[in-house]
Design a binder for these strands. Sequence first.
RNA 1: GCGAAAGUGGCGGAACUGGUAGACGCCCUGGAUUUAGGAUCCAGUGCCUUUGGCGUGGGGGUUCAAUUCCCCCCUUUCGCACCA
Length: 837
Amino acid sequence: MKTERYNPQDIEKKWQERWAESSAFACTHESAKEKYYVLEMFPYPSGNLHMGHVRNYSIGDVLARAKRMQGFNVMHPIGWDAFGLPAENAAIKNNTHPATWTYSNIDNMRAQMKRLGYSYDWAREVATCRPEYYKWEQLFFLKFLEKGLVYRKKAPQNWCPSCHTVLANEQVVDGKCWRCDSQVEQKELTQWFLRITAYADELLKDLKLLEGGWPERVLAMQNNWIGRSEGAEVKFKLDKPVAGIEDITVFTTRPDTIYGCSFMVLAPELPLVQELIKGSPSEAELQAFIDRVRNMDRIDRQSDTLEKEGVFTGAYAVNPVNGKKVPIWLGNFVIATYGTGCVMSVPAHDQRDFEFARKYQLPIVQVVSESGQAESTDGWDCARAGAGFMVNSAEFDGLTSEEAKQKITEKFEAMGVGQAKVQFRLRDWNISRQRYWGAPIPVVYCERCGVVPEKPENLPIVLPLDVKTQPDGKSPLPATPSFAECTCPACGGKARRETDTMDTFVESSWYFARYTSARNDKAAFDMDALKYWLPVDQYIGGVEHAILHLLYSRFFTKALRDLGFFPDSLDEPFTRLLTQGMVLLGGSKMSKSKGNIVNPAEMIERYGADTVRLFCLFAAPPERDFDWTESGIEGSNRFLQRIWRLFQDGEDKIACVKACSSEAGDCASKEARELRGKEHATVKKAGEDMGQRNQFNTAIAAIMELVNAIYIFKEKMQDSEGDRKVFSSAMATVLTTLSPITPHICEELWERMGHKEQLAAEPWPVFDEAAMVRDTQTIAVQVNGKLRGTMEMPTGADRQAMEEAALAFEPVKRFTKDLTVRKVIVVPGKLVNVVAK
RNA sequence: GCGAAAGUGGCGGAACUGGUAGACGCCCUGGAUUUAGGAUCCAGUGCCUUUGGCGUGGGGGUUCAAUUCCCCCCUUUCGCACCA
């Protein structure tokens, strides 16, 4: 018999065309069905899909297809995070335009995605570099501005000299640029900020809502990043006020220890320090210290090996609670941007203060004692007592430190010198970028009116495309008169347009919502569609976005909610998050520079898209890293060949039936009943693993078991209608349950079974628990908890029958020969444990 | 230092509420088929001193029974880290 070979290239193309023709994956919010929104983090159009993309999008596609079959109205969209620096750099290098480069990459990658058979609703595709998209972002900017959520500030900024732009705090990793690894410098600039700190509390609190749906480590990272500390702000008056400065405010998490404050340390770069040291006899020395600290780079400055250094300013402050004069020092370890940049030092109870006090021979006063007795601090080698009883603290002596925290804070309030204060580590988000390829910021600088927001009706402020990128990477916009020179929206006079563009993370902070009405040119969103589709039920992407993108999107969701763009009830954008692992080669991350790359296009060419998808899902659970191996992908291909062959060899026995269509009455033989039982068990397991547990590897394993069982059955089956039906039904089940993972081969064989409707439109089979009940069960037999053998017993055997059978079981007799049976534990249908001594 | 995750055969991994540890796949071994190779099929495949014993990072504990629950420790990976 001549058998036809499995030829994925033809099959896959055929079905991709059919799905497109029938708009198989289009969706609408006007549906009575329960919705399910599956989203993978949209790609940056860098040129070609890499294996990480393939894994990411394959995971999402399986989920989308499985949920669709399971009766949900599924939205599965895709788009392009299309603004950003690489486009500019590539354009400079290849002497082209960023837009040309970007759009051609999009075309290429879209074709590659289609070649993988992803079930996207392509009608919802967005590209963030199109004015139809960023227009709405410019509108949000104006609304944010109105609400005070956007503001302009001059401050030292993270500056990447190689990218020629500032970076957000989140984009500085170990003192280096997240993109190009260059050392980040500090540069004083006037920039636009999004007031993410206004939502710090809510962003932190709502992490609770995500528990269970998000990986704990991502929640932990966000928690860390937001960094909430409770404490108090306290004002210390200067002993001798200097020009314009009468007092210094410190932030402390330990207001209870204020009686132990013996000095104060300030961050050297604070402006108030300049005032403080002016005219001091040692001004020159102090200035030298300040300059030296200022010039240290960020890494050295913040490493824990940094030697703590300080200088005494000559000035004193007065502790408000006891009137003691404390010297004011400058210290290289104090961070100007945290709290007030001024620290009250309590060396007895803070390790860092302790070391500093020892080094510069400053007094150490104990105010918290575990025993409640004041001790001498002379012999101490480190700071002590996080909690205990107050000592040396006037009327607070004897209180617990917890009580004192509150009481002393109340005292500050009563005295009018301070109050309770919650401090966050989170900083506002600098969104200005001194680069060309980004969304223009819709404000102008008018000679007469100053900073003027654009009028909403003037949006979009279109990024001009007729510019030439500069070889040095500097933005061409300031030198483009048609863009930079404009009229003031307020007075109509001469004005200059803002030529910085927005951080690309702004675009990706709301794209998931735009998909719900991607073609709407009247408004950013259609409220009905938002209410129906949001939040995203399952979001899938790499953990590298644990802070950046995910935090920004959470912030945008809350801000847009409060501006009325999003439904009131929407607090979080992504209900569940899956952070997929990396695809490695030879144990390390695939990278062009290392040359350890597996090109998806090549693999698709060699094995077909189905095999590539199958391997990506089978090799490991989705959140874990896995190593790409040649033998692994061949194994996956072999499995599909095996299904193909099973179908070819059994074609004369296959009837056009659906999954789980054979009935108990068709099962004349034990073998038929076994296969039918396995079939139903597979539907159950694969359905749960794919639809609920995101355990695609075990779903595949279960289907492989079914295929193995069909092979065994085929050898033994009778030429009877019943057996043919059992066989055909099991085949249909393989195709149906496997179709989310390898949709093309399944569609093809489904059609060859004689079905006229697409498998993509087929519902998930319904399993029958009764079918899974077997004639006999294997019972494990233990003696004292150790397995001594197994016995086959009729299903439903009662406890007594099981106990008797076990006691009569030869290995049990042998192992209990010299012992007395004390107890017999019976787990019906599973095991018998004979306890003997 | 703080926080999170993870340690199971030669390898990737399974075991969902404590109940036959190693499903499924890779690798490997033997056999069938083939001129040969490949492919396929069948059998085997945790370790050992094999009527038995030992095995889920190590050590204790709870239990008739522990990869699973509790305590202590070790290792690896990741994130944060002078945050007052």
